[in-house]
């Protein structure tokens, strides 16, 4: 890749927080470093990945509303976790997490376990864990 060929396709994936470092050759064939704000193929696959995640999340929200799973399930999916990871993050036994993911178990959730989940999911004290539309 030549220095002037380094792509600068901005799709706001890096949110202006940083830039990618790219190695490219200058006119004498020596390697230099060029900063890049993004590249189209990379943007496409990242966007596609997040679209898929959001589709799954919408599906999860429907499942919560129809009563198949509890709101905790939605939040778990939103944080791209599975029940083992949620169990580790919250410090709750994985069997209990499995139970809490069902509406029946969720109804029996103790206040301290709610706190544990909220802390694991980076939720502020005022936020409601049963809210799945946020």
């Amino acid at each position: 890749m030549k220095k002037d060929q380094v792509p600068q396709d901005d799709a706001n994936m890096l949110e202006g927080k940083t830039r990618d470092l790219q190695y490219a050759v200058d006119e004498h064939g020596n390697y230099t470093i060029v900063k890049s704000v993004g590249w189209e193929p990379k943007n496409i696959v990242l966007q596609r990945t997040w679209e898929e995640i959001n589709e799954k999340l919408n599906h999860a929200r429907e499942q919560v509303k129809t009563g198949k799973y509890s709101p905790l399930y939605y939040h778990m999916k939103k944080h791209l976790m599975n029940k083992w990871m949620l169990a580790k993050y919250a410090g709750v036994n994985v069997c209990k997490v499995w139970f809490h993911l069902k509406p029946k178990g969720y109804a029996k959730l103790s206040p301290e376990n709610i706190e544990k989940y909220k802390k694991a999911l980076n939720m502020k004290p005022g936020e409601d864990i049963s809210d799945v539309d946020a």
């Binding site: 890749m1 470092l21 190695y23 490219a24 990379k42």
Partner: peptide
């Protein structure tokens, strides 16, 4: 493609970095 170009590969699956 994601594995090849995700943040921190130096581009094209590290080939440019290796060339450098």
């Amino acid at each position: 493609v994601r594995m090849q170009e995700e943040i921190g590969t130096g581009g094209a699956g590290f080939r440019f970095l290796f060339a450098a």
